[in-house]
Computed example of a mutant assay.
Amino acid sequence: MRDLRPDVPADTEGFARVRRLALPYILFTPESVRHVLTRSHPDAKFRSLVAEEDGEVIGTAQVALAHESTEPGQAYVNVHVHPERTGRGAGHLLVATAEEYLASLGATRLYSWVLDEPASVRFAERHGYRAGRPARFLRLDLAHGTLPPLPETPAGVELRTAADFAADPRPLFELDAETVADEPGEVTIAYSDYEAWLAETWEHPLLDLDLTVVAVVDGRPVAFSVAYSDGATRYFTAMTGTSRAHRGRGLAKLAKLHSLHRARAAGHTEAFTGNDAGNGPMIAINKWLGYEFCATEVRYVRELG
């Protein structure tokens, strides 16, 4: 078990491969793995850990303090092991190392996303974690499914892409900060560092500026659907939201529908998204768009000390 080396292709490729096999509903590439490790905010104390067997990466962990949380002492540890290499002790070693590290930083509550399937649940509970809020992964077949037709854009609303804000993305940062603060979940997030947002979010290698659609009113972004893509066939919605003053008008729904139409036209054949199980409005939008549930994750938590 050791820290991932971001400049070693075998490390980042191995890490991404394990994550894709263990969690096929989210996009991972060597570039995205390297980006998260090297661009995360210093206050997160982020580490990527790998477990190896005969020189092959078979287990991974991403470990960090929830530095943007409004409550101190919270942290994350997300562990995934190659599905054909479980039962070898890699997961246990990764969890133990991660917990020791986070405890040394003063973390008192650890959160971990766990797939809702028997082996993963047993593993989490055996290590002292208890179940919290569930979340759903959803999949949309862009190649063979049918998207709702594009409606007429409401008067006073303009649809743009994130590429239109390349010269000055600050308005998108402000919209992101407002919407993420209202997301349902166990950890309340507050964005305040624009430069960190630029480094971590705006410059993320999976962010597709041409597929990210923004609804604009009076020159200001008021709703958006943020798109990640692998540059080939797979698409993932990283965030969809609306500013508080413009909710209830269907603008996030409109932005996401346009984004999906653009993705299909660009040759993407599979779309994924994820929702907190309590986010009824967004789940309803995704089902209207044609998404189907494909897996459930549960946010497990462990109190330290």
Rank of each mutant, 00 (worst) to 15 (best):
T108K: 13
P169Q: 01
C294K: 03
Y300P: 00
G231A: 09
A16H: 10
A238C: 10
V216Y: 13
A124V: 10
V217Y: 09
E53Y: 02
N275W: 13
T108N: 04
H258R: 15
P171I: 05
P184Q: 01
A277D: 13
N286Y: 01
P42Y: 00
T201I: 14
L105F: 08
F272D: 03
V222G: 13
F224T: 04
G55T: 06
S225I: 08
F28Q: 02
V301E: 11
D54C: 00
V214P: 09
T296N: 13
Y291M: 07
H80M: 14
A181G: 14
P42W: 01
A162M: 11
Y101E: 13
R19C: 14
G145P: 13
S229E: 11
A166P: 01
E68W: 15
F28T: 00
I285H: 00
A44I: 00
A16Y: 10
L198A: 04
R160V: 08
A103F: 06
I26F: 12
L147C: 03
A181R: 15
A277F: 06
G55A: 04
R122Q: 10
E178N: 07
L94T: 02
H82T: 02
F46R: 14
N279G: 03
A75R: 07
R136V: 12
L150P: 05
P24A: 06
T240I: 10
D11L: 09
R126G: 12
P118H: 08
V214W: 10
L102W: 14
T269Y: 02
G89S: 04
V114L: 04
D54Q: 05
T188W: 09
A66V: 06
I283L: 15
A255T: 14
Y101L: 14
L4A: 10
W113D: 11
T161N: 06
V36A: 06
M282Q: 06
P151F: 10
A252D: 08
A181W: 13
A66E: 15
R249N: 02
Y235E: 12
